[in-house]
């Protein structure tokens, strides 16, 4: 009886492994040269205005409030650490969190796009991870689209009375997933092949859909950890910041 159960279990297990294991996913950023020039240019055109707005908003924020600079540096540092960690996932491949959710929640998406740009530049120049020609597209997915969704999710949840912890978790995790979804869309648009844009997008989505879920959860949890620390040591500054943002919007 015991033996039967054992056989059954191991059969089930190996089935699951076969189902999950052999597909490899790509790391999040689009590699150097892997967008046709036209698409590379389009994403630069889309991203640059947001980046310019980001510079302005950071300047305004820090002019009015020099204390806030350190908090901004913290958000950048957090993105630096998280995007350096390639975490293993259930599909047998690795990918990394973005870490930009924190910045998005505290400073809003346009300021966060600058943080994303810094991380992406570091990785493109020193690590051949992502690329200069694809920088516009990668800034859009990781520095703009993800943070916008994180920011909106946090605001909506927070207003609807969800606890801070839950709001931060969902916002950061969702931002991570969106980044990958946008990357697939970008690749699908650029490489419709013979199957067409939609089918191509689905193909790219399929590569990482499962890979990304546990990483998104990890990113959400880690963002809550750092947010908790902030509320413990730095509640005044947080309140000040949300006050400034409320007035502005």
């Amino acid at each position: 009886m015991k033996k039967k159960l054992y056989v059954l279990l191991s059969a089930l297990f190996s089935f699951l492994i076969v189902l999950l294991a052999p597909r490899e996913a790509y790391a999040m950023h689009i590699m150097e040269g892997f967008l046709p020039p036209m698409w590379a240019a389009i994403w630069f055109v889309v991203s640059i205005p947001v980046l310019l707005h980001g510079v302005k908003s950071i300047k305004k924020l820090t002019d009015e409030n020099p204390n806030i600079k350190m908090l901004l540096a913290l958000c950048g540092a957090f993105a630096f650490v998280l995007s350096a960690m390639k975490l293993p996932s259930v599909t047998g491949s690795s990918s990394h969190p973005t870490g930009v959710g924190l910045g998005a929640i505290l400073f809003g998406p346009s300021a966060t796009s600058i943080l994303g740009l810094i991380v992406l530049l570091f990785q493109a120049i020193l690590l051949a991870h992502g690329g200069i020609s694809t920088l516009g597209a990668n800034v859009f997915s990781m520095g703009i689209a993800g943070p916008i969704v994180s920011y909106l999710a946090f605001r909506t949840l927070n207003k609807s009375g969800a606890s801070k912890g839950v709001s931060v978790f969902i916002a950061a995790a969702l931002g991570n997933l969106i980044t990958y979804i946008v990357t697939s869309i970008q690749l699908g648009l650029a490489f419709p092949g013979e199957v067409g844009i939609m089918a191509s997008i689905v193909k790219f989505l399929g590569i990482f859909a499962v890979t990304q879920v546990p990483l998104a959860i990890s990113e959400g949890l880690l963002t809550v950890v750092i947010y908790n620390l902030l509320t413990k040591y730095n509640e005044n500054e947080l309140n000040e910041l949300s006050l400034i943002r409320e007035v502005k919007s």
Partner: peptide, 23 residues
């Protein structure tokens, strides 16, 4: 983070930007 390392055998957990190139 550890669960995949235990559950998934025979994988190097490649970061695999390569897989996108292949695709």
């Amino acid at each position: 983070t550890i669960i995949p390392l235990i559950v998934v055998k025979n994988s190097e957990f490649g970061g695999a930007d390569g897989a996108a190139e292949e695709m």
